[in-house]
């Protein structure tokens, strides 16, 4: 599988809709990220031009926020929490397990663009520690079995599609 083909027309339309609104950089980037799954580097210059910013500035904003990515990501982005509460409850072994299961290091995506493995500082659900997220879904009170079943669930989903 390839990363989702980007619809250039659609990107252009999104950028045009925000033209001239310098304040709208973040919402514009969010929309691109949502639509394409990442921010294609070649869209930096058109975005800058539309908002009357320097391309280097736009790049700075993209690379500052963890929510934006300049690289295509997998269909499922797994974010394992590395926060203190999760650490205390064994978050480190969850991450280790995840690495092994997916065969990926932090920040990596598999060649089929199915999974991307990331870590975050705290998911804000410390009472459920240890935690992780897959796309927008939270999973708490993790243990090796639960991790395996969550992953199996997504692997299966993939099979369906």
């Amino acid at each position: 599988m390839k990363p989702k083909e980007i619809d250039r027309e659609q990107l252009k339309a999104i950028i045009d809709r925000h033209r001239g609104k310098t304040w709208a950089l973040i919402p514009l980037l969010q929309e691109i990220q949502e639509t394409a799954g990442y921010i294609p580097p070649e869209s930096i210059e058109p975005v800058a031009e539309a908002l009357n910013l320097f391309p280097s500035q736009v790049q700075g904003v993209i690379t500052f926020y963890a929510g934006f990515s300049l690289e295509p990501k997998g269909k499922y982005v797994v974010r394992v929490c590395r926060g203190t509460a999760c650490h205390v409850k064994g978050g480190r072994s969850i991450l280790r397990l995840m690495r092994k299961e997916l065969g990926l290091d932090e920040g990596q995506t598999d060649p089929e663009y199915r999974f991307t493995l990331e870590t975050v500082a705290c998911l804000g659900a410390c009472f459920l520690a240890p935690t992780m997220m897959v796309n927008r879904n939270y999973y708490g009170k993790l243990n090796p079995n639960k991790v395996a079943s969550v992953l199996a669930q997504y692997r299966k989903k993939k099979g369906e599609s």
Binding site: F54, S56, Y65
Partner: peptide
């Protein structure tokens, strides 16, 4: 000029 800005965090 806009040649440079912060990159990464």
């Amino acid at each position: 000029a806009g040649a440079i800005d912060y990159n990464l965090r």
